[in-house]
Design a binder for these strands. Structure first.
Lengths: 189, 189
DNA sequence: TCCAATCTGTAACGACCACTACACAAGCGC
DNA sequence: GCGCTTGTGTAGTGGTCGTTACAGATTGGA
């Protein structure tokens, strides 16, 4: 048990992390300077470094926070929906909403940062596993190519995020989602 | 008629512009420093600035060159194919090839640079016009939503470029293209 | 052959980058 | 009160950014 003595932190760590997350989300890792972060958060460099470590560590923590908040809807859909079809439908329709929510950066942080390709591959893999499970249980036709379908879903979500960044409307993204879903194989009755 | 006097340029302007284009294509505008460009081209800063102007102008010219070479296949397809369906089919299948050609940066320069959203919108508009034309001539059903279809094509191409950047294979992109094309409305007989 | 124009290499410019040394302020245990 | 610990604000660090001044090299025209 540490002694817990010394001067108290003069800012809310979680508030600041949220502001930092939005900055990285909007402008990307490289284009967001530490000076930008100190300006938007009001926290001076030494305090920022003491609380989070260097810029890279701060970015990592911001991404983790993003995944647990703004970007958690995909993991929730995969976890809560019984079939891959329902999970993907929910992911795409909720993405249309999340990627165009006012007073937030548009699109997806993970899909916008070139350095996060590992997380993107994890997400595609999770969708692929869900599809594979449905094929195994007979909910999807035996010939269904799980990888192919998962990559197509990945392409759709990336396209939606990119469009959102360029200012596409929620309705436009919803249409993209609906059109993409129309290719889903018919379930086994 | 200028006098054409003075020392000759010690490098091939077009060769250097191609190397610069590939650098911006691979790493983006911000992440590519002038020092990087002088290192990869072997051209010293004063010569680079004399030949192309500042970094922004160099990027602009690199993008123009890209559109006339590596990225010209979309304009060619729209120009040469008689129907929107054929043009889009060609765009998507050629994109799968172009975005994964060895010894080249992966994906599309225009789709990867955040600052080029104007060019992206132009491309979507061109596809939309082609679709609208087919609806007007009766090649596509009267109820076809040209904007909706064009945005879906835009999403697909963006998704393919993003996947290519992350190392997707040509076969995977081809599958995405084929799947996306399956949503195309049946032509009016 | 000498001039004027253009290009090249060196070497720097001020501005910004991520990051931190240091002195001081603020808190807790005693 | 005192001492120890921890956060804060100022003011830098060395390094890299885009850009350019300047002197020398190289060309064609007169």
């Amino acid at each position: 048990m540490s002694a817990m003595v010394g001067r108290k932190r003069g800012f809310d760590r979680d508030d600041v992390l949220d502001q930092v997350t939005r900055a990285f989300w909007r402008d990307g890792y490289q284009a967001t300077s530490v000076a930008d972060l100190t300006a938007t958060t009001g926290v001076n460099p030494p305090s920022l470094y003491a609380a989070f470590g260097d810029k890279r560590a701060l970015f990592t923590e911001a991404v983790a926070r993003y995944q647990q908040t703004y970007g958690a809807f995909t993991a929730r859909a995969l976890d809560e929906e019984p079939t891959a079809r329902q999970a993907v439908e929910r992911i795409l329709t909720e993405a249309a909403v999340e990627y165009t929510t006012p007073d937030r950066p548009k699109g997806c942080l993970v899909l916008s940062a070139p350095e996060l390709d590992g997380l993107r591959d994890q997400a595609r893999q999770a969708v692929e596993n869900k599809i594979r499970h449905d094929v195994a249980t007979g909910a999807l036709p035996a010939g269904t190519d799980a990888h192919r379908l998962a990559v197509f879903v990945a392409a759709t979500v990336r396209g939606m995020s990119s469009l959102a960044r360029d200012g596409a409307t929620r309705a436009e993204l919803h249409d993209v989602a609906r059109t993409a879903l129309s290719v889903w194989p018919a379930p086994v009755p």
